[in-house]
């Protein structure tokens, strides 16, 4: 059952990406609407998968790289759905769908066994620390998706009326992501003090979370104080995505540290 929900979700997301691509290339509004419904179906399957896995594991499923990737992808989908119904702005949809699907596909490459939650992760901070990280990364990814859309539109028509709107949403997504990342870092520091006796240990994950934070803090400074916006900020949002992905995937796979709970193969101690 779990596998059906999981692979069903990936399949629906992929179908939605294909349909949305064709809809945008051939300007078929009806196909775009269908793509959205297919995407929603994928979202429902993914949500069901997370709930069912959580019930089977007896905890919120965020304890290793696979579960985090699933939650990360779900976070992108949640924000996309909220944006869609709150703002009614369709311009972000295609790139966001691609990102949501790609992260979920990455999760499919990882071991899916359910493991018991190791003692180090049994904390009241577990959900808030990891959950805020997943949603902050999701916001940054969507800012990157919006940036791609901006660049594509700008290439076609520099006077497009939607550019200003997209630019504003890049800023809002980055600011929400930065706020959530701050929550992640602060809660992580409090948790680290409880678990390891020190608020900060210069662990690679901590360092790269801080670098990601600085990266987006610089972007807000540039925007708010140096009036750097528009195409510059769109490129900034796009080029920052690899750093976010490195913080999420690269650090766990290339560097060892205290955050090795998030490694691909979980180990117990």
């Amino acid at each position: 059952m779990l596998d059906i929900l999981f692979f069903g979700g990936i399949g629906f997301y992929f179908a939605a990406v294909l349909m949305q691509s064709f809809a945008q290339v051939w300007k078929k509004e009806g196909l775009g609407a269908t793509a959205w419904i297919v995407f929603l179906a994928g979202f429902v399957l993914q949500s069901g998968y997370i709930v069912l896995r959580g019930i089977q594991a007896g905890r919120i499923p965020m304890a290793n790289q696979f579960e985090f990737a699933t939650m990360f992808s779900w976070g992108i989908a949640v924000i996309l759905v909220l944006l869609h119904y709150r703002t009614g702005l369709p311009w972000i949809t295609l790139f966001a769908m691609i990102m949501c699907w790609a992260v979920y596909l990455y999760a499919a490459l990882l071991p899916r066994e359910i493991h018991e939650l190791m003692p180090a992760l049994r904390s009241v901070w577990f959900v808030s620390h990891i959950g805020s990280a997943a949603f902050s990364y999701a916001s940054f990814m969507l800012a990157g998706a919006a940036g791609l859309r901006y660049i594509a539109l700008y290439g076609k028509n520099k006077e497009d009326s939607r550019l200003e709107e997209i630019d504003y949403f890049i800023y809002r997504l980055i600011s929400i992501g930065l706020l959530l990342l701050t929550v992640t870092i602060v809660i992580g520091a409090v948790w680290a003090e409880e678990a390891w006796s020190s608020f900060w240990t210069w662990d690679p994950k901590e360092v790269w979370a801080l670098i990601t934070w600085i990266l987006y803090a610089i972007s807000l400074h540039l925007r708010l104080n140096r009036k750097k916006r528009g195409l510059f900020m769109a490129w900034y949002a796009v080029l920052s995505v690899p750093i976010v992905l490195f913080t999420f995937i690269g650090v766990n796979t290339l560097m060892s540290g205290l955050h090795s709970y998030g490694a691909i193969i979980p180990f117990l101690i």
Binding site: W202, P204, V207, W208, L210, I211, I214, L215, A217, I218, H221, L222, N225, R226, V251, M255
Partner: peptide, 24 residues
């Protein structure tokens, strides 16, 4: 402001260096 942005960039680069080479 420019000075602050440059300092943030330098700080990020130096901290990254510390994560690439195992410390202590």
């Amino acid at each position: 402001m420019t000075c602050g942005i440059v300092l943030l960039g330098v700080f990020a680069a130096v901290t990254a260096l510390g994560s690439l080479i195992p410390q202590q």
